[in-house]
Structures are given as C-alpha cells and as structure tokens.
C-alpha cells in the first residue's frame, strides 16, 4: 500500500503548489499523481505490486454497483406503480466463496442494493448466504449471476 501513500502525498503536493486546498483540488492532484506513478511504474519493484490493477478493479466495482442500483430502482418502481404484482418471490440459498468478514459484509451489502435480491441471513460458518429474490423462477441462475458478477468483482478488488 506504500504506492497509495505516495499517491496521497503527490495529491497534497499538487494542492499545496496550486494553492487550492479544496476537495476538487485534491481530487485533481490525486488523478495527476496516479498518472505520473503509472508512467514511471517500471521503476518500482514488481511494477507497483498490483496497485494499478487494484485501483482499476475498485473503479470497475463502483461503476458496476451504481449501474445496478439504478437498474434495480427502476425495477422496483415498475413493480410498485403498475396495478398487478409481477413478482414471483422465493428464498434461495447461495454458496459463498468470499472469505473473511470484510468480503462477506461487502458482498451482502451490495447484493441488497442490486436488482431483484435482498440478503436475509448468513450461516454461522459464512459458507451460505440466504437471499430473498423478487423473480425466483430459476434459483440456480440467480446463484450463478451473483457468483460471477458482484462476488467475483468484490474478491478481485479486496484480494
């Protein structure tokens, strides 16, 4: 994580030199510093030890998450505002590959905010996640979708 500290330091330096200790000033400094570090990455051991890949994965996770939040809100809005209830709900068990409390917490939180699923409970051993799905015609497909979507992205970002 020392590259991250270096990046923060560059952001501070940028803010100090431009005389703009504001949020946008620091954000621009961070972006410029990230670009500079990326240019000189052959100089670091191990090419930065995956720092650049990790930042890319975090950004991808955030973009995916915001997109899914908007989609799921429109889905809920449609179900609430149309006269008939379209939902075919079900309660599904999903095997969890995520390890460690931070990963499980992030996965369950994100699942609750993405389309059609709401996390209900996790077993004692953190191996199985129980979710409530709005459209549970095919429980296996939902399990696969979570495993290959949110869960994989979270594991990639946190590993």
């Amino acid at each position: 994580m020392s590259l991250f500290l270096l990046n923060l330091l560059l952001a501070l330096a940028w803010a100090a030199l431009t005389g703009q200790f504001t949020l946008p000033g620091l954000a621009i400094g961070f972006a410029v510093g990230f670009g500079a570090l990326w240019l000189v990455q052959p100089l670091f051991e191990n090419r930065g030890g995956g720092y650049f890949v990790r930042v890319y994965r975090w950004i991808r996770l955030l973009v995916l998450f915001h997109y899914e939040l908007v989609v799921s809100s429109f889905q809920v809005a449609r179900d609430v505002l149309t006269p008939r209830h379209r939902a075919r709900p079900g309660i599904i068990c999903i095997p969890l590959k995520a390890r460690g409390e931070a990963e499980v917490l992030l996965v369950t939180n994100l699942i609750s905010l993405t389309p059609g699923t709401l996390s209900l409970d996790v077993t004692e051993d953190c191996n199985t996640l129980v979710v409530h799905a709005m459209f549970a015609d095919d429980p296996k497909a939902i399990a696969r979708q979570i495993e290959n979507g949110i869960e994989r992205r979270v594991r990639e970002a946190l590993e």
């Binding site: 939040l69 799921s72 609430v80 209830h85 709900p89 905010l113 059609g116 709401l118």
Partner: peptide
C-alpha cells in the same frame, strides 16, 4: 415516493424491504 408507496402496496415484509432499500438509497 416509490419507496414509500412500496411499503403500502407490496404484499409482504421482505418484498417491502426491496423497495425501501433500493429506491430509498437511490
């Protein structure tokens, strides 16, 4: 508004939580 209406209209507690968690956060 949708999140609030969802509490009123949707059939059971778990489906209602879908409406408040997603639409309310957005």
């Amino acid at each position: 508004f949708v999140a609030g209406l969802g509490i009123l209209r949707l059939p059971d507690v778990l489906i209602r939580m879908h409406a408040t968690a997603k639409a309310g956060t957005l």
